[in-house]
Each structure stands twice: as structure tokens, then as C-alpha cells.
């Protein structure tokens, strides 16, 4: 059982630790059921692949993914919330000929519900289960977008594939022994709600006041990367203010921004103005973080 999995490890690491790891695995699954064996083997395979890809927790890239993962989940939670909100608005809209949601819309309503549920579970409940569920749902989302040819409210399947795949990669890249602590997850969750709630209220207000189908909500959803950057900037500042490393918080923010910036670029096509909001967010956050560092130095050595 372990032989094929052990082959996934880099040769040098396998030569050094292979026998020892295989022995621990053998003891761990001794008398265990099929499910427990599968989980153990999957965990071993994931570690082996992390070693190969240099994203284990003893590597800088692994620590960066671990720091960025809760931010990515927060952005996805807000994104899913907005997508669902928009679908509900179409469904409940009684103007004109009534709701005109097709089968694909219902499929994606299910996908966004699953994304939201998994993201909330990861941020507010059990991180390991929520993270893996979210990664699986994102892969399903990418496959659906590619096959059905729909990509959420604006119908840009390529963009949704990019968002889903990049986000899933960061989530899967997060080493399991460096799960973000409760404080960081709570901050990211709070930032997502803080941005999602007023944005949704603004959409309701816009619809009520101006009776516009394709009004500000679509612009806010897709034409601007402002709100995800705000979530990331708020999260990074709050984490660093609470005693975290400013440099790591900034790096995590930039990493977590990659899926949304790529998503935005894929939807609208690249133009130079597009980079203004993320760049300003990053610079402003960096200024806040380093201003904080220059006054009282509250950082302590890396522990993990």
C-alpha cells in the first residue's frame, strides 16, 4: 500500500526517511478500516507532493500559502455571497416577465451555496474539513464552468476557471500542520462580512431606487477588484496589528490577490488601469504595516 505512495517522495528524502515513514504508516493503519487507511495514504501522498513541489511547512512557499489561505477563503466567501445574492435578486424580481433563470443558473446556485458553506465552515468551524471541501467544490466549479460554458453572473467561464483553479491551488498548498489559528480565521471572516454586507445593501438600494437590472451590482461584482482587495487589506492590517509578522501579512495579501486579479483580468481583458486598485491597496497596506512596525516592535521570532 505504501510503496506507490512512497515513490512520490523525492529520492533523497525517501532514502533518508522512507523506511521510518513507512514504518510509522504501517503502525498507524494497523487494524484500521478502509476509510482510515485511505485517509492516511492520502495524507502521506499530499506530504510527498509537497516535498516535491517545495511547499511543505519548512519551506518559505509553504508558509506563504498557509498565511494566504484564510484570506483566499474570505474572498471566496464574499464572492459566493454576492453571486447568490445576485441570483436571488433575479429570481425574486417581479418586474417584467418574471424570473428567467436557466438550468445552468440553478447549477451554479448550487455551486455557490457549496462554496459559501465550505468557506464558512473553514473560517468559523473546522479548518481542515472546510478547506478540503472548498478545494473540491472549486475544482467542480472549474469543470462545470468549462463544460457548461457559464461563469457566474457575467457568464465568463474562462475567468471562473482561473479563479477556481488558482484559489484551489493556494488552499491545497497550505500545509496541514500550519492550519491558520482561530484568531486569523476570525479576522478574515469578519473582513469578508464587513465588505459583503454593505455591498449587498448597496445593491438592494440601487435596485429599489433605480429599478435597474444591470446596475451597480454587476459593476461591483465584476468590473472592479476593489472589494476583494479591501477584504485582503483589512485582513492583513488586522492580523499584523494583532502581533503577526507585517512582512508575512503583506506577502500573504499579495498572494491571495492573485486569483482575483487574474479573474478580473480574464473578464475584462487586461488594461493598465486595472492594476491601480490592487497596487494602491498593497502600497497603502504596506505603509500601514511598516508604520506600525517602526513605532513599537512587537514581533517575536517565528514559531509556527
Amino acid at each position: 500500500m505504501t510503496t506507490p505512495v512512497m515513490r512520490l517522495y523525492p529520492a533523497e528524502y525517501r532514502a533518508r526517511y522512507g523506511h521510518e515513514i513507512a514504518e510509522v504508516y504501517r503502525q498507524a493503519v494497523d487494524g484500521a478500516g478502509r476509510l482510515a487507511r485511505s485517509r492516511e495514504a492520502a495524507d502521506l501522498a499530499a506530504h510527498a507532493l509537497r516535498m516535491r513541489l517545495h511547499v511543505s511547512s519548512d519551506r518559505r512557499a509553504g508558509r506563504l500559502f498557509a498565511a494566504a489561505a484564510p484570506f483566499v477563503v474570505a474572498v471566496l466567501a464574499a464572492h459566493a455571497g454576492l453571486e447568490l445574492f445576485n441570483l436571488a435578486a433575479f429570481l425574486l424580481d417581479t418586474r417584467g416577465d418574471g424570473p428567467y433563470l436557466g438550468a445552468a443558473d440553478w447549477v451554479f446556485a448550487g455551486v455557490w451555496t457549496a462554496v459559501l458553506a465550505a468557506a464558512v465552515a473553514a473560517l468559523a468551524g473546522r479548518w481542515p474539513a472546510g478547506r478540503w471541501c472548498l478545494a473540491v467544490v472549486l475544482v467542480v466549479c472549474a469543470l462545470l464552468a468549462a463544460t457548461i460554458g457559464r461563469g457566474g453572473v457575467l457568464g465568463a467561464p474562462g475567468a471562473l476557471v482561473v479563479l477556481s483553479v488558482l484559489s484551489a491551488a493556494i488552499l491545497v498548498g497550505c500545509p496541514p500542520d500550519m492550519a491558520p489559528d482561530w484568531r486569523v480565521r476570525r479576522i478574515a471572516f469578519g473582513a469578508a462580512i464587513a465588505i459583503w454586507a454593505p455591498l449587498s445593501a448597496l445593491c438592494v438600494m440601487w435596485r429599489t431606487l433605480f429599478a435597474d437590472y444591470v446596475g451597480i451590482e454587476l459593476a461591483l461584482l465584476a468590473e472592479s477588484n476593489m472589494w476583494p482587495c479591501l477584504i485582503l487589506a483589512i485582513s492583513a492590517c488586522a492580523v499584523a496589528r494583532g502581533g503577526g509578522s507585517a512582512r508575512l501579512a503583506l506577502a500573504a495579501m499579495v498572494t491571495a490577490a492573485l486569483p482575483v486579479v487574474a479573474y478580473d483580468a480574464a473578464i475584462t481583458g487586461y488594461h493598465p488601469g486595472q492594476a491601480v486598485v490592487p497596487a494602491l491597496s498593497f502600497l497603502l497596506t504596506a505603509a500601514v504595516l511598516f508604520a506600525r512596525r517602526s513605532v513599537p516592535n512587537r514581533t517575536s521570532p517565528q514559531r509556527g
Binding site: Y17, I21, V24, E40, A46, D58
Partner: peptide, 14 residues
Amino acid sequence: MRTGTLYGALDRLL
């Protein structure tokens, strides 16, 4: 703690 997770953590702590 599963085997892969354990050895990831041991590598880091080492």
C-alpha cells in the same frame, strides 16, 4: 495527527 502531517511538522520544527 496523520503520518504525512507529522513528518511535515517534524521537518519544520527541526
